[in-house]
Design a binder for these strands. Structure first.
Length: 551
DNA sequence: CGGCTTTGACCTGCGC
DNA sequence: GCGCAGGTCAAAGCCG
């Protein structure tokens, strides 16, 4: 590369990549821009490469501006700089660089360019042309390009501001979410008010706390929860009193960290005689979201840091179950269990439990939102309603707007579990299919198992709005197949080897996006990629796992 | 050497 | 009360 050419704006990640990749072209283009007619032809050829990258719009305008006259050549250069809006910054910046490094005189600049393009026979073609003409033309070009540079700089600044604005908005939202979660944990259980609030809330107002605040007695629905279901009595869960076992466990886990999680912990400790608080605490922590995904990796990447603290052989499954704790913050109560499906060992079952007590990175936020939204379904499903059927819109909102997923809710006591099944191929047409048994959705009303007509959910999630949003992450699918869930748990799957196929889940898309982000150390770039993927619906490299967990 | 994983022991609840 | 199963602990070992 010639000296002073093709330098990159390292501070600008958007342009730096381009500079790096196309620097040779930059050199030739800039060098040719100050040469004669033939050189311009050469320089136009140089633009062929960016044209192929920039798209058809450039070709159209180039056809109108192409000219063989020297005077037009100057215009041609400028027009082309305009055309390649994606690359114009590079070109203009090259000129700027040149103006900085070779400010002595235009003649000097021209000479330098000739030297830089020494490899081209065209560099000597115009030796006989008047140097005044060249200087004048070069000045014009330089002036125009400098103007262009200013404009591009302003545009870059604007884009940077936009990015900064987006980042700020994200931070504000995140802080708002954390605040809401903390506030919610401080509030006493008010079931009716919650119900109303959630039903009236906008989608973004469905917080993980609402989701995981499963204080009401759950579940008569006698669904065994996933593979991680607990054999438990309905009576225990209906009673609303905390299982002693859970109570003790909670007390045992009341480390300083747990207290820092939320005031409830402390209140519970101080008022150990209040079963409601204990139940709240226990149930909240026990609320679970299970994600089924195909993955060869030992553990899916969800943006959080986990530490393995145990492993057990679970009954009925030759694959061991691993227990992980969130280690992103001291005392984070979130735990997860990872186990392969006994039927299909390519399926990884990850069950999340608890609520993070710390800010989450974007990647983790994605998964946390997913699981929280899934749990929200659980919450909303356990809410009383006029007909005992879950509010579909609420469900749709709960699972986040970009989701078209169906979640499986298992109301197995003492803690209900919602399962997001990412293991089946998406097929929108299958929204119309009547659901095979068992019931797709079951509302865990105490003593009143209320099956919800399964078609409702697909219809809801099949709304154009969600379909559109669904496509936003279409390129970020983590699993090869995805989509459905069934009221799902291991035993049922064993009985029904042909699970219903349903649309892709939010968890799938989000986890994939999560992986995409987590795999990119540069959050800005990752954010841009994510936004790009949303806008374009383009594909994204599968990044399933970067965890080196040993199993 | 610190952090993490492994793994056997331990605790607890539940069913019989 | 006993056995079983789920869940957790913690010492030992591994690894970067």
């Amino acid at each position: 590369m010639g000296k002073g050419w093709g330098l990159t704006l390292d501070s600008d990640p958007v342009t730096s990549n381009f500079f790096t990749n196309k620097s040779n072209s930059t050199t030739n283009v800039a060098g040719g821009s100050f040469l004669g007619l033939k050189q311009h032809h050469h320089h136009r050829d140089m633009f062929q490469f960016p044209v192929s990258l920039a798209g058809s719009r450039d070709d159209d305008r180039r056809g109108t501006s192409a000219s063989s006259s020297p005077s037009d050549d100057t215009k041609l250069l400028v027009d082309e700089v305009d055309f390649f809006s994606d690359k114009k910054v590079r070109v203009v910046d090259d000129v700027k660089k040149e103006s900085i490094e070779a400010p002595a005189s235009d003649l000097d600049v021209n000479t330098g360019l000739l030297l830089l393009t020494a490899g081209s026979d065209q560099s000597t073609v115009d030796d006989g042309v008047s140097s005044d003409m060249e200087d004048k033309r070069a000045k014009n070009e330089l002036a125009q390009l400098q103007d262009e540079l200013k404009r591009m700089n302003a545009e870059n600044q604007k884009l940077k501001d936009m990015l900064s604005h987006v980042s700020n908005n994200y931070s504000a939202l995140h802080m708002h979410l954390v605040t809401l979660m903390q506030q919610q944990q401080q509030q006493p259980p008010q079931r009716n008010r919650e119900t109303q609030a959630i039903q009236e809330s906008k989608p973004e107002e469905v917080t993980p706390l609402q989701i995981l605040d499963l204080r009401r007695p759950s579940a008569a629905g006698a669904e065994a929860a996933e593979t991680i279901s607990h054999s438990s009595s309905e009576e225990r869960t209906r009673s609303g009193t905390p299982p002693s076992n859970v109570e003790k466990r909670v007390n045992r886990e009341e480390s300083p960290e747990s207290e820092s999680w939320g005031p409830n912990c402390k209140v519970q400790k101080l008022n150990s005689g209040k079963p409601v608080d204990q139940s709240t605490e226990a149930t909240m922590r026990k609320a679970r979201v299970s994600v089924r995904a195909r993955s060869e990796a030992p553990m899916i990447t969800d943006g959080c840091q986990w530490r393995k603290y145990g492993q057990k052989m679970a009954k009925g499954n030759p694959c061991p179950r691993a227990y992980y704790r969130c280690t992103m913050a001291v005392g984070c109560p979130v735990r997860k269990q990872v186990q392969r499906c006994a039927d299909d060992r390519t399926i990884l079952i990850t069950t999340y439990e608890g609520n993070h007590n710390h800010p989450l990175p974007p990647a983790a936020m994605a998964m946390a939102s997913t699981t929280a939204a899934a749990a929200s379904m659980l919450l909303s499903g356990s809410m009383p309603s006029a007909d005992g059927i879950m509010n579909p819109n609420l469900l749709a909102r709960a699972i986040l707007p970009c989701s078209s997923s169906m979640a499986t809710i298992s109301a197995s006591a003492p803690f209900p579990t919602v399962t997001l099944d990412l293991t089946h191929s998406p097929n929108p047409l299958q929204f119309q299919r009547p659901p095979p048994p068992p019931t797709q959705f079951q509302v865990p009303f105490p003593g009143q198992p209320t099956p919800v007509s399964a078609p409702q959910l697909p219809q809801v999630f099949g709304q154009p709005l969600y379909n559109n949003n669904q496509s936003k992450f279409s390129g970020l699918q983590l699993s090869q197949e995805m989509g459905s869930s069934q009221l799902g748990h291991h035993q049922q799957q064993q009985q029904h080897q042909a699970p219903p196929q349903q649309p892709p889940t939010l968890a799938d898309t989000v986890s994939a996006a999560t992986a995409a982000i987590t795999n990119d150390p540069n959050f800005t770039a990752a954010l841009a990629a994510a936004i790009s993927s949303i806008i374009s619906g383009g594909t994204h490299p599968n990044s399933s796992n970067n965890n080196n967990n040993r199993q």
